[in-house]
Amino acid sequence: MEEKLSKEEVLHVAHLARIKVSDEEIEKYRIQLKELLNEVDKINEVVGYDEEMMITPIKDEALLHSDEVEDQISFEEVRSNIPHTSGSFIEVPKVVQHE
């Protein structure tokens, strides 16, 4: 088994997770993430399992909500938690391209 991830692999997962990593951290993660990945690879040892998949332990059907307006909050209630607002809008650095 490989001992370390490549630098590129670390940067790739960091990008997926939108977490910036410093050069120092890259070195650390190359080892730590690989350790975790080797661990989860143990799933490959399992064979002969049933195809049926569990999505939630809840077996009942979902309760449906009638189409009625309730529980609305005003923007003022949540404003203080928002890092940047402008009027009744939430402000972010300019959005350039759509994912």
């Binding site: 009625e68 307006v69 909050i73 923007f75 009027g87």
Partner: peptide, 16 residues
């Protein structure tokens, strides 16, 4: 359960 409304003023049809 927030209102589905077009053209209302910004950030007024919200639940958490």
């Amino acid at each position: 359960s927030a209102k589905n409304g077009y053209g209302d003023s910004a950030n007024c049809n919200l639940t958490l």
